[in-house]
Computed example of a mutant assay.
Amino acid sequence: MNDEQMIDCPEDSQQLTRLRAIMHRLRAPGGCPWDAEQTHESLLPNLIEEAYETVDTIRRGDWEHLKEELGDLLLQVVFHSELAEEAGRYNFDDVARIVSDKLVRRHPHVYGDSAVTDTDGVLSQWDAIKRQEKGDEEEPYLHNTGKGLPAMLRASKLQKKAAKVGFDWPDDAGVIDKIREELSEVEEELESGDRERLGSEIGDLLFSVVNLARRHKLDPEILLESTNVKFETRFHAVDQSLQAEGKDLSSATLDEMEQRWQQAK
């Protein structure tokens, strides 16, 4: 089938080919003006947004909606692959091939003769193969770790990798002491009035809290988002309670809002 015939193709096994044909048509002359104007750079907000919307759907356990969000995320991969093909760099097949080759290469316990049988062994083996592939044994150990990730996720990834070579607290007590130490330093800088040093100390405090989450295999990004949702829900309840009494947020006192906050909890 040519691209035009693929547009309405109903066969399940051809849907990825159909998606690529649609994308190609949208970018072609006479297609969609918006799609035709896009670049790798202009699509970055979409890529990030779709990834986070997919994460949110999984957190909420909305499995039916997840299907749509995964489709939106897949579209971003297809879109960027189309742009690369137009530039003569590579195409979607090359993208799929490189990840398929990587999966086979990094799973010698499945596709080769490695004797690894547990999760820790698999992860250690994966890291060793990855370092060998990239030829970066001579690079600093944390070179490019988590590059491009949001800061909180990157902090966790940096800490996790450092812990693999023994750079970690022996128990939670050390982490808690570190959090208290960093909090004390924040308090000192609050009194000093030095905003730059205050910011640095707050960053250290956040890093230490992330470390506590990491040690317990908790994702700090997910934890913070859960708290965001909780805050939003409770604050909405405060707003609703005030409205029920003919008041609004702008005219309510802090004590009135705090009272309703405690009720919402």
Results as ranks from 00 to 15, higher is better:
1 M>T: 00
2 N>R: 02
15 Q>I: 04
17 T>I: 05
31 G>I: 03
32 C>Q: 11
33 P>R: 01
33 P>C: 01
37 E>I: 05
49 E>S: 10
53 E>M: 12
59 R>Y: 06
64 E>T: 13
65 H>Q: 15
65 H>R: 14
68 E>Y: 14
71 G>R: 07
73 L>T: 12
74 L>I: 10
79 F>V: 03
80 H>E: 14
95 V>R: 10
96 A>G: 00
101 D>V: 08
102 K>H: 08
104 V>D: 01
104 V>S: 01
104 V>W: 00
105 R>N: 10
109 H>K: 12
112 G>T: 00
112 G>M: 01
114 S>T: 11
116 V>S: 06
117 T>Y: 00
122 V>A: 05
125 Q>S: 11
126 W>G: 02
139 E>I: 08
140 P>I: 12
140 P>L: 12
147 K>H: 11
148 G>A: 03
151 A>F: 09
153 L>K: 11
154 R>Y: 01
155 A>T: 08
156 S>K: 13
160 K>L: 14
162 A>Y: 00
164 K>Q: 12
166 G>I: 14
168 D>S: 13
168 D>H: 13
172 D>G: 07
173 A>P: 01
174 G>H: 09
176 I>D: 09
179 I>W: 04
180 R>M: 09
181 E>F: 04
182 E>K: 07
182 E>Q: 02
185 E>Y: 12
188 E>S: 01
195 R>N: 06
195 R>W: 10
196 E>C: 01
201 E>K: 02
201 E>T: 04
202 I>R: 04
205 L>S: 07
208 S>G: 09
209 V>R: 00
216 H>F: 10
219 D>A: 02
220 P>R: 03
222 I>S: 04
223 L>W: 02
226 S>R: 08
229 V>C: 04
235 F>W: 11
247 K>I: 09
250 S>Q: 01
252 A>F: 08
255 D>I: 05
258 E>D: 11
261 W>C: 11
262 Q>T: 13
262 Q>F: 11
264 A>D: 14
265 K>N: 13
